[in-house]
Amino acid sequence: MDTTHSSATALWALRAAALLHLTVLLWEGATAGQLVTFNEDALPLHFYGAFGVHVAAAAQVAAAWWVWRGAGRGPEAPRTVLAVSLVAFALGFGQAAMGSYGPLQAHVPVALVLTGLVAWAAVLSWSRGLRSLPVGD
């Protein structure tokens, strides 16, 4: 297998997953905005959108792991994007639980933290540290 092609594919998979994750978080924010204006028709859209957040987060973690593994498991940038992706994945479940069963006063600020983490991962996916990765297996 061509390892250069594999590394480039992994990096593009990470970029796509991070952008998808940001997109579904934007969807969640838009539907949440509808909920605060008492548009109850948005509730199922927001509820099922949370599942999209979890799927996109899992895809981002898988792609970050693929990049990290292909980089020889050593360089700082792949390790950082994997760590940020894992934290965002875990935080997404806690954030969703707060929306369903916990205080909404915490649900919204945690959503902002989650969005910031995913944006950080997206920025890292285009960083010089990942563009200049050594070719691994």
Rank of each mutant, 00 (worst) to 15 (best):
T3A: 14
H5E: 14
H5N: 07
L11K: 08
L11I: 02
L11G: 11
L11T: 15
L11R: 12
W12M: 10
W12R: 15
R15I: 00
A16V: 10
A17H: 06
A18Q: 07
L20S: 10
L20E: 01
H21D: 07
L22M: 12
T23H: 02
T23S: 08
V24P: 01
V24Q: 03
V24A: 12
L25Y: 10
L26H: 05
L26N: 10
W27K: 14
E28A: 06
E28P: 00
G29Q: 13
A30Q: 13
T31H: 07
T31D: 04
G33Q: 15
V36E: 10
T37K: 10
E40Y: 00
D41C: 01
A42P: 09
L43G: 11
L43M: 04
P44L: 11
P44M: 01
L45V: 01
L45H: 07
H46A: 08
Y48V: 12
Y48Q: 06
G49Q: 03
G49F: 06
F51V: 07
V53D: 12
V55L: 12
V55H: 15
V55G: 11
V55M: 12
A56M: 04
A58I: 14
A58K: 11
A58M: 15
A59G: 11
A62L: 12
A62C: 11
A62S: 04
A63N: 08
A64F: 06
W65K: 14
W66V: 12
W68D: 03
G72W: 01
G74C: 14
G74V: 13
P75Y: 03
E76G: 01
A77R: 11
A77W: 02
P78R: 09
P78A: 10
R79P: 08
V81R: 05
V81Y: 05
V84A: 00
V84D: 00
V84K: 02
S85V: 06
L86C: 05
V87R: 03
V87K: 00
V87M: 01
A88T: 09
A88G: 00
A88H: 00
F89R: 02
F89L: 14
F89M: 15
A90G: 13
A90Y: 13
G94R: 07
Q95Y: 08
M98W: 03
M98N: 07
M98P: 01
M98V: 04
G99Y: 04
Y101P: 01
G102A: 11
G102F: 12
P103W: 06
P103F: 09
L104P: 05
L104S: 09
Q105H: 07
P109G: 09
V110G: 06
A111S: 14
A111Q: 02
L112M: 12
L112K: 09
V113H: 02
V113L: 14
L114V: 05
T115Q: 09
T115I: 06
T115C: 08
T115Y: 09
G116F: 10
V118P: 06
V118Q: 06
A119H: 00
W120N: 01
S125Q: 02
S125H: 12
W126I: 03
R128E: 13
R128L: 08
G129N: 08
L130N: 00
L130P: 01
L130H: 00
R131W: 07
L133T: 03
V135L: 13
V135K: 15
G136Q: 04
G136L: 15
D137E: 02
D137H: 15
